[in-house]
Simulated assay, not measured.
Amino acid sequence: MQKSEMMNKIERSTGFIAALDQSGGSTPKALAAYGIGADAFANEDEMFALIHEMRVRIMMSPAFDGDRILGAILFEKTMDGEAAGQSVPDYLKSKGIVPFLKVDQGLEEEANGVQLMKQMPALDALLQKGGAKGVFGTKMRSVINLANRDGISAIVKQQFDVAMQIISHGLMPIIEPEVNIKSAERGGADAILQDELRQALDKLPEDKQVMLKLSIPEQCNLYTDLIRHPRVLRLVALSGGYSTDEACQLLAENSGMIASFSRALLERLQHSQSDAEFNAALDSAIQQIYDTSKT
């Protein structure tokens, strides 16, 4: 897939984006949910080898197809690995799936009700590496816990500043300021975020675009104006800890949003399943999420 083909697929095709980007802190939880406990690995290298095996099993499944999946977000170590004798980005593109790279390096401690991204002094080198390996875009995550205007404004400014750095490398940034779905101030946080994002988008040059990855809002269709904004290539939803059924039910109430699920995509998968059982469970989740995104 050439860049123009990837752009067209992300912008116009029906489907969703799979999030396969669990990193350091979230990897043990992902493995445990898959049926691999902490006693199965002695160090970080063994842990990442196990999560890579899980991801390769997912990517190589016949259920993981480019007809329903638009793209996949990768952790750096996954991007550096192989599937079926090819680099992971090349393998995904051979299946018609657009590769993205997670670039944030974790979160700062909470201040003003939010967690900013940690500084990324090596970002330019990572972006050059990702571009050389053929990824189309990137993803970076911040977290919003309270409806604090100053905190949310700081998150949006940081995200858009880094987005411009990513765009300068010819890559498409996915901006992910996640609103904590357990927040007691969730509705207010959603509303402030919507306003801050709209203002930031209005300031983008006319020849630049970003993607947005947002929590499913408490108020249905709150993000309609963001979906229609000319500076937004696509707006995708994270599952945020919801089950597959819950996430799909809520997403279906928000026109124009498509899924970019992680936990809700993988929750039915177990290490102990036979290949037939594994493929059937993955196919069931993919079809449910695809149908919801299509609707």
Rank of each mutant, 00 (worst) to 15 (best):
M1D: 15
E5Y: 00
M7W: 08
N8V: 06
N8H: 11
T14W: 09
F16S: 07
L20M: 12
D21H: 04
D21Q: 11
K29V: 04
A30F: 11
Y34E: 04
G35W: 09
I36Y: 00
G37F: 02
D39I: 05
F41D: 05
F41L: 02
N43L: 00
E46H: 14
H52I: 05
M54F: 09
M54S: 14
R57S: 02
I58Q: 00
M60N: 06
S61F: 14
A63S: 07
F64I: 07
I69V: 06
A72R: 13
L74M: 09
K77E: 05
M79F: 07
E82N: 05
E82Y: 15
A83N: 09
A84K: 14
G85D: 11
G96N: 06
L101M: 10
G106N: 05
E108A: 07
E108Q: 10
E108P: 06
E109L: 08
E110L: 06
A111L: 07
Q115T: 13
M117C: 05
M120D: 07
L126K: 12
Q128A: 15
G131K: 07
V135E: 11
F136P: 05
F136Q: 06
M140S: 08
V143E: 08
I144P: 03
N148F: 09
R149S: 14
I152G: 07
A163I: 08
Q165A: 08
I166Y: 10
I174C: 10
I174M: 10
P177H: 07
N180G: 01
K182G: 13
E185P: 01
A189E: 05
R198E: 11
A200S: 13
A200H: 08
L201Q: 14
K203V: 09
L204G: 13
L204C: 11
L204W: 06
L204Q: 01
P205Q: 01
E206C: 10
D207N: 11
V210R: 12
V210E: 06
L214A: 00
S215H: 06
S215R: 01
I216E: 02
I216Q: 01
D225K: 11
L226Q: 15
V232P: 00
V232F: 03
L235W: 03
L235N: 08
A237E: 04
L238Y: 11
G241M: 04
Y242Q: 05
D245F: 04
D245H: 00
C248M: 02
L250P: 01
L250G: 02
L251D: 03
E253Y: 13
S255M: 07
I258V: 05
I258C: 03
R263Y: 01
L266T: 03
R268H: 15
R268M: 13
L269E: 02
Q270C: 09
S272E: 08
Q273P: 01
Q273L: 05
S274P: 06
S274R: 11
L282E: 01
D283A: 10
A285Q: 11
A285Y: 00
I286S: 02
Q288F: 07
Y290R: 01
T295M: 04
T295P: 00
